[in-house]
């Protein structure tokens, strides 16, 4: 009974990680996620697929890190994945706000240049 339960758990782990990996690939394929930002997701997706298929691999990994309880190693991996992806998000957001600021400023300057070039009378701003 216990063996069957472990078997079912492994099966759902495999299904879940394959679905995760598949969805990431699908998002990139449909251009909804850029390759550059999919790298971290893809690598961790692969890691989870590998460890759900190769259970003793997870135990080996846990042993190498001195973690007594193998599933805890999985949580550790998950946390690392989330941390890295969130840091990447913060970097991307910072870069976007930086370029957003430059674009807004350039737009204000161009509007003024255009207004002068066309010699339009006082046009109220929106």
């Amino acid at each position: 009974m216990a063996a069957l339960f472990a078997h079912r758990l492994q099966l759902s782990a495999i299904v879940a990680s394959v679905v995760l990996l598949g969805s990431i690939v699908e998002l990139v394929r449909k251009h909804r996620l850029q390759e550059a930002y999919s790298l971290l997701w893809l690598s961790f997706g692969v890691v989870f697929v590998v460890f759900s298929v190769w259970r003793s691999g997870l135990e080996l990994f846990a042993h190498l890190l001195g973690i007594a309880y193998a599933p805890a190693a999985l949580f550790l991996l998950l946390l690392i994945a989330i941390f890295l992806i969130l840091i990447q998000f913060s970097i991307v957001v910072s870069r976007l706000s930086e370029s957003n600021r430059a674009l807004a400023q350039e737009l204000a300057l161009l509007r003024e240049e255009l207004r002068r070039a066309t010699r339009a009378p006082n046009d109220a701003a929106p």
Binding site: N100, A104, Q105, L107, A108, L109, R111, E112, N122, A125
Partner: peptide, 14 residues
């Protein structure tokens, strides 16, 4: 500011 006719006005969109 524009109506005063004495200032250049730069409008930031956001």
């Amino acid at each position: 500011a524009r109506a005063t006719g004495r200032a250049t006005v730069l409008d930031l969109p956001v």
